[in-house]
Design a protein around this nucleic acid. Sequence first.
DNA 1: TTTTGAGTTGTTCGA
DNA 2: GTCGAACAACTCAAA
Length: 457
Amino acid sequence: MPPALIWFRRDLRLSDHPALVAAVEAAGGDGTVVPVFVVDPRLWGPSGAPRRQFLRGCLADLREQTGGAVVIRSGDPARVVPDLVRETGAGSVHVSFDAGVYGRERDAAVERALGDVPFVRTGSPYGVTPGRLLKDDGTPFKVYSPFARAWRARGVHSPAPRPDDVAWAEGVPTEDLPPAQDLRGTVMPAAGEAAGRDVWAQFREQRLLGYATARNTPGADATSRLSAHLKYGTLHPRTLHAEAQELAGDHAEAVEKFVGELIWRDFYADVLWHRPETAREPFNPQMRAMRYDTGPDADERFAAWAEGRTGYPIVDAGMRQLHGEAYVHNRVRMIVASFLVKDLHLDWRRGARFFFDHLVDGDLASNQHGWQWVAGTGTDPSPYYRVFNPTRQGQQFDPDGAYVRRWVPELRDVPDRYVHEPWTAPGGLPEGYPAPIVDHAEERRVALDRYQAVRDA
DNA sequence: TTTTGAGTTGTTCGA
DNA sequence: GTCGAACAACTCAAA
């Protein structure tokens, strides 16, 4: 049999990998498998340093796991992949289905360039492949809850077996790993499949039990921390789903909440699959009329937000966590996003772009639609008057200030009861910490007026 | 086609 | 401090 080529993209693992299983089967008993990763300038170029570094770590891990067999090539996949097929004499190319805006076009181009060589898509990075779940009338879901009901009713496949003793092709010329990135002091999560398994095992054993409530407390660090692994496919959500279900007897509520988060990921991927333009445009077309501030003054407010010096502790802590860990706690993402859009009156796309550039887990579907949800332009028919109050959110979810003190050391000595509104502290603002750059109550009214204007239009 | 129930994550006010 | 009601109507999903 001729070799089979497995082209890794956002599925950088060997376990529970249906496309890899398909490649091994295609190679038969005596054929080899050629593991390939293409460094595509169109994806690599726009990625921020944290994502590049994490991807690099995943490739290093994959190379180790395959005994050094992974072939790395840079360039346009529509040229690189057919070249490799010619070089190796591969009889088929195997991939996981990519539902992304760019990915599906790229794959179509590669498939055309391959001519008669089969381009085989097996599995996808989701529990349910985007586009598969439709309402009874045949149209896509626009609301999370009904989508989640349908997702749970449909069920998820069992994990695919990990192929053992794969005959990896040897001696195919490869480039080195892509260059290490200058992270400017950002502390990164460990990359690769084994690291992902470790994070998952720890979460499953230690934090899943309390997940339903503790996940909202940023100071407790009770979330799964699996987002980067899901983004790069070092873990598959199907694996997590199956292994979480094993605990459902004792921890039904926690497991349901956790699976609910996996479904959110699938939901937003599904939304983007049906409406690719919503990576840039409001999901709700009416919201195109929304007015956002621009100009030098707006730029200065954006800079204060981006650098974590707004004078609102929970906002500043969140943005400093973004720089410190290339990651932000989920609830705090909502708070800082709400602040940008509703207190500073800036376009959600500016914030989404900044997140995407700085997060290690930056995923187009989840990022853009998470922002759209907060901005009130997205899928959730949310009450327009839902405006996060950064002080109240801080007091409610970080009552002892553990989170804000971790990231904003200037607040270390401010007593708990003032830590989310240090400008009211009897001793005044601590040295080096700014006064609030805007008045929340005032800006809330401005935001509500602007939403009202869109509704009236 | 019509109807009905529901919609991730909120805030403020007044009792 | 705690609690329920009001916020204001609209869209979506499914019967």
